[in-house]
Simulated assay, not measured.
Amino acid sequence: MQKPTLVILAAGMASRYGKMKQIEGFGPNKETIMDYSIFDAIRAGFEKVVFIIREEFEETFKAIMEPKLAGKIKTAYVYQHLTDFVHADAAVSPERSKPWGTAHAVLCAKDEVKENFVVINADDFYGEDGFRKAYEFCTTACSDTNYGIIGYTLSKTLSKNGSVSRGVCKADANGKLVSINERTKIYWKGEQVFFEENGQEFEEDPASPVSMNFWCFSPGVFALSESLFSQFIKERGMEPKAEFFIPIVADHFINTGKGTIQIVGTDAEWFGVTYPEDAPTVEASISALVNAGAYPPALWS
């Protein structure tokens, strides 16, 4: 059996955060959030990690990651460029300055990944249970007609300090994904959860599964993504801020009958950094996990 690969999306511009949060240290010894994800992935059984990065950050990125990962897991690097998979005769907005989003980033790994694989964000802390569930799914259930998404409990992904954006998953009776409803402003109000849409307030079930961009795919997703991206560029290439997101591929996959996407639930606590103000909370959360014995104080020693 070929073991699955971990693919980490680390090419984001980090515009709201203001710096390269992917390589910022939050652990006791300046471990990055990615360090904890990779550590959990190794514990789960993964033997290879592919980083999707911006080529201009290659030297800095490798200098930070390679010394601590050497001998622990195989590494590979993929670059996401604006022109990747864009035909020379395609019409693209001259105002476009950054690549085309998460599904485009995954597509850039096409030549490097030949086995079932897991996709995660670099700046999200997913927890050990999520990686164990993802590894099990990739090795026992993932196929060209059955993908997976790790579903986190909504209440465990919200902030007490304000609203956030979350993709709330709707499942059928068999736990298969039907749709992901993007809630761009969802928040606690007392002990209840609400979201706003078109100026109105609606209640949401705090136990609902949500997508934190933690996916399980077979290599078959590359051909599908390439076809959809070509169509996307034809239709939206002149939009300077258009994004080709993973849910676009997922929606097409299930809505055209090409296959199903299993929602794989986890009870793990999620946390992440979007704004600089999030950093102290992330540091405190990691410190609590280390003090509880979930992780060693020096992760790679």
Rank of each mutant, 00 (worst) to 15 (best):
K110T: 09
G12H: 07
T274M: 09
D89F: 02
G71Q: 06
L6C: 13
T5H: 13
V168D: 00
D129S: 02
P276H: 08
F125G: 13
N121Y: 13
A141L: 14
F245N: 12
H252K: 11
T153F: 15
E269S: 07
H87P: 00
I149V: 12
E136A: 10
I261P: 09
I120H: 08
G167Y: 06
T32M: 12
K74H: 13
T32I: 11
Q262L: 13
L82P: 02
P209M: 10
L228Q: 11
G257L: 01
A294H: 12
K30N: 15
V210T: 06
E47Y: 03
G45T: 08
L6R: 05
E58I: 06
S37V: 09
S163V: 09
I286A: 04
K72E: 00
V264W: 07
I150A: 10
G27D: 00
I261W: 10
Q231G: 05
Y147L: 14
N255C: 14
K74V: 13
G127C: 05
E112N: 04
P209S: 15
M65F: 11
E56R: 12
W300K: 01
W188R: 03
F85S: 01
E239C: 06
N198W: 13
V119W: 07
F57H: 12
A44T: 02
M13N: 14
F214N: 04
S15A: 09
Y295Q: 04
E239G: 04
S15L: 15
G27I: 05
C142Y: 00
A88V: 00
A63M: 14
S143R: 12
I286W: 03
A134P: 15
K68R: 03
P219S: 10
I33G: 00
G237L: 06
I42S: 05
G151E: 00
F214T: 00
G272L: 01
F39L: 05
L289D: 11
T5M: 13
Y36H: 02
K3I: 14
V113A: 10
A171Q: 06
T256P: 06
H252D: 06
D144A: 02
C169D: 03
A279H: 14
E24M: 14
E112P: 10
L9P: 00
K48E: 00
I261M: 15
L107K: 01
S179W: 06
V264F: 05
T102E: 12
Q192F: 04
D124W: 09
S287T: 13
L158V: 14
I286H: 04
E235K: 07
S227P: 15
L9H: 03
Q22F: 14
D251G: 03
E269C: 03
R96M: 04
L224Q: 07
T102Y: 11
Q22M: 11
F202P: 15
G18S: 11
K258G: 14
